[in-house]
Computed example of a mutant assay.
Amino acid sequence: MKLSAYASLVIVSCLASGAFAQSRLLVAEKGAQSLAIIDPGSGKVLASVPEGGITGHEVIASADGKLAFVPVYGNSGVGSPGTDGTNIAVIDIASRKVTGNIAFDHGIRPHCPMIGPKDKLLYVTTELDQTITIIDPKTLKIIGTLPTGQPQSHMLALSHDGRRAYTANVGPGTVSVIDIAARKVLKVIPVSGNTQRISISPDDKWVFTADQTKPQMAVIDTTTNTVAKWIPMEGIGYGSAPTPDGRWLLVALPDQNKVAVIDLKTMQVARTVAVGNYPQEIIVRPDGKSAYISCEKADSVDEIDATTWKVTRTIQTGKYADGLAWAGQ
């Protein structure tokens, strides 16, 4: 069917005005107390939205891709003295403005936010209370908590079936396994003297966390809730993310300025990719074609082609790029 000049103009106008949803890459600019909103197509930083003067380390987008939730942790590292964050900034991605706030009644150091894969609720680690707080992202109201049974429950992974939560408990060096429906701890798994970050395989069979005392990844069998395997690496690991097809696990190696690519069939490092200074967090695009790695000391995010394993682009951001999230399809 041939379109009239008017109809063609309307379609072009709608596309240009953003009437159709566009994906965005979100980056917590830890050193600038702001959130970068990036067009992943052009690699352009569209805006750096101030969070209110205190540092947010992590970010997640709502299920519909319209809002970004940035827990305001404070100005310290985990387990160290400093300010204790009391809120979560809510940012409208389209208007690039803070439009809401989720306040706690005391210092709680909220940190890692996740969206429930089934219920679409917002889950956030609330470290000083040894809990995960559950929030309705539509009303911005707190509707419950999950216990972790451990201090320093810093990072969180949710199973894709919506049944389990797993926290990396830094100082204790453990992982808590939590039944979401029953709201109780099923098991605390000893891992090492200190552990950081956590991720889960797409089939929910494996949970991964990085040993901070030795250059190795712990692989937890979610059936037995025990450490089933150790994967040696050339440096201490940090953030990790699996590819959507479950074939690869990408792990940041901050002191090596590399990303390790682990073959999940063999549970061995297949290759490493050189990236910018001090890589922190990794996300893989929903289509699995590219991965993004925040490089804290380079103030940038590197984009890696997940077929060639080459860095295809470096996106300059604000100071101390850290937490990453994807908004849209």
Results as ranks from 00 to 15, higher is better:
288 G>A: 09
278 Y>W: 15
60 I>S: 15
41 G>T: 14
60 I>T: 15
149 G>T: 00
299 D>N: 15
285 R>D: 11
206 W>P: 07
329 Q>N: 14
60 I>E: 13
16 A>P: 02
273 V>I: 15
123 Y>E: 00
258 K>D: 06
182 A>Q: 15
141 K>A: 13
303 E>P: 11
29 E>M: 09
280 Q>L: 09
310 K>M: 13
297 K>W: 11
143 I>A: 10
168 A>I: 09
26 L>Y: 03
62 S>C: 11
129 D>Q: 14
246 G>I: 10
313 R>N: 04
276 G>R: 14
300 S>H: 07
208 F>L: 10
173 G>F: 02
75 N>S: 09
8 S>P: 00
285 R>T: 13
260 A>C: 08
288 G>W: 11
306 A>F: 03
326 W>H: 04
297 K>V: 00
268 Q>M: 12
113 P>A: 09
127 E>M: 15
193 G>P: 05
246 G>D: 08
46 L>A: 07
270 A>K: 15
300 S>M: 02
183 R>L: 06
183 R>P: 04
138 K>Q: 15
188 V>E: 07
97 K>P: 03
211 D>M: 10
66 K>R: 14
75 N>M: 05
49 V>H: 02
264 L>V: 10
38 I>P: 07
15 L>D: 05
302 D>Q: 10
35 L>T: 09
13 S>M: 01
6 Y>Q: 13
181 A>P: 03
226 T>W: 00
123 Y>H: 11
247 R>P: 01
136 D>L: 04
32 A>L: 12
190 P>E: 07
30 K>P: 02
59 V>N: 04
248 W>M: 09
324 L>G: 07
40 P>Y: 01
1 M>K: 06
162 G>V: 03
169 N>W: 05
142 I>P: 01
326 W>K: 01
101 N>E: 13
35 L>S: 12
139 T>W: 04
321 A>K: 05
153 S>W: 02
328 G>R: 08
183 R>E: 01
287 D>V: 09
74 G>D: 14
221 D>V: 06
234 E>P: 06
104 F>Y: 13
108 I>Q: 06
200 I>T: 00
303 E>R: 05
192 S>H: 09
96 R>S: 12
163 R>F: 01
101 N>Y: 03
270 A>W: 04
155 M>C: 05
171 G>L: 11
260 A>F: 05
16 A>D: 04
178 I>N: 02
123 Y>T: 00
314 T>M: 11
259 V>K: 08
210 A>N: 09
66 K>D: 09
265 K>M: 14
214 K>A: 13
281 E>C: 06
87 N>T: 05
318 G>D: 07
85 G>D: 08
196 Q>H: 12
141 K>T: 13
324 L>K: 10
151 P>C: 08
267 M>H: 14
212 Q>T: 03
1 M>P: 12
176 S>T: 09
71 P>F: 02
270 A>F: 15
69 F>Y: 11
142 I>V: 13
231 I>Q: 05
319 K>G: 00
